[in-house]
Design a binder for these strands. Structure first.
Length: 330
DNA sequence: TCGGGTTTCGGTACGAATGG
DNA sequence: CCATTCGTACCGAAACCCGA
């Protein structure tokens, strides 16, 4: 399931893309769904109908194929839906508007009737949006666990999921399967154990930080998150919160936030940044001055000026040096 | 001053080493 | 045996540099 779903995701629109997009087909009922609906109308009992669909799917599965299932019989299981950015969804919709579905939706029968979607929530959404009645499905005999895990691990494969969202997913898995180790989850998801470890460290961040992450999931990557988590456990929660709040305001980047949080409180000095300015003489830059810590660099447009300024600076510096000596002796 | 090549920097990926 | 930390390689974007 995991692998299959991954492959589905990777190749969802591979075939269709290079094709020139034809005329948008009107949403006139395709023949096979139409026939299916007609057939359904003649069946009174819903159970019989489901039984028939299930049998159809079983048969199709044995033959290695798929069957048309009414969208009204497909149900979503909470937490299984895969994240998809809006623009990707539009891409998928436009693809399916003009091309036929290459990868059938994967479903499994529900005890209370109908089918639950194992993989293909977005394809179903698209079909509903396009006003279609049914969609090609394949039956997958998987357990509840397998279906959930498969969906989540396929989800993980998406690089546009933020690290925080990945953490929430892994945490969900742990909640559902108590006792599962990080190593096991790493193995199942094909993620290095060190990454799983870093992700799971989000758990130990101060509540205020987690609240911020709920609002802005991309605020912290797994690495900075793990660093801040370690600091939190060392009793630096207050500084961690402070640093992350400034990070959220855009005053710091992630490494600076980690640095800030790891400094002793009294040492939390404003970050020394290189400063400088340029003096122009008309259009050309007469002098470019830069200061970093205790170093001042002066760059002149020509050597004569450099020499002249050096002489003037000498006098200025000697005066200041004397002042420093006087200050010390006081 | 413009364009494009390069360097730097913040960040991620992941295996190796270490710790509990 | 797991989880965590460390070290290094890598990546992309922005900053920087420099000749035309």
């Amino acid at each position: 399931m995991g692998i299959g779903d991954k492959l589905l995701a990777k190749t969802a629109n591979v075939e269709a893309k290079p094709r020139p997009i034809g005329q948008p087909s009107t949403s006139e009922a395709k023949t096979s769904p139409g026939r299916l609906m007609d057939a359904q109308n003649r069946i009174n009992s819903a159970e019989v109908r489901i039984a028939q669909l299930t049998a159809e799917l079983e048969e199709a599965r044995k033959a290695g194929g798929a069957a048309e299932i009414p969208l009204s019989e497909l149900h979503e299981v909470p937490g299984r839906r895969r994240h998809m950015p809006a623009e990707k969804f539009v891409e998928l919709r436009e693809n399916l508007r003009n091309n036929k579905l290459i990868h059938p939706v994967v479903v499994r029968p529900r005890a209370e009737g109908g089918f639950e979607i194992v993989s293909g929530h977005h394809r179903c959404d698209v079909y509903r949006e396009l006003g279609r009645d049914s969609i090609r499905c394949v039956l997958e005999n998987v357990t509840e666990e397998e279906a959930s895990l498969g969906a989540f691990y396929a989800n993980l494969l998406q690089s546009d999921l933020t690290d925080y969202e990945k953490y929430l997913g892994f945490r969900d898995i742990q909640k559902r399967f108590p006792g599962i180790t990080q190593a096991r989850m790493a193995e199942q998801s094909g993620t290095p154990a060190s990454v799983v470890s870093a992700l799971m460290a989000f758990e130990h961040l101060p509540p205020a930080v987690l609240d911020l992450l709920d609002e802005i999931p991309a605020l912290l990557g797994a690495n900075a998150g793990a660093d801040l988590s370690a600091l939190t456990r060392k009793g630096r929660a207050n500084q961690v919160v402070e640093a992350v709040q400034r990070l959220a305001k855009g005053e710091l980047d992630q490494t600076q936030a980690v640095r800030l949080a790891s400094q002793e409180p009294q040492k939390a000095k404003p970050t020394v940044r290189a400063s400088g300015f340029k003096i122009r003489a008309g259009r050309t830059v007469y002098c470019d001055l830069r200061t970093a810590r205790n170093v001042v660099r002066l760059e002149f447009s020509n050597e004569q000026e450099a020499k002249a300024v050096q002489d003037e600076l000498k006098a200025l510096l000697e005066r200041r040096a004397e002042a420093v000596v006087a200050e010390k002796e006081k």
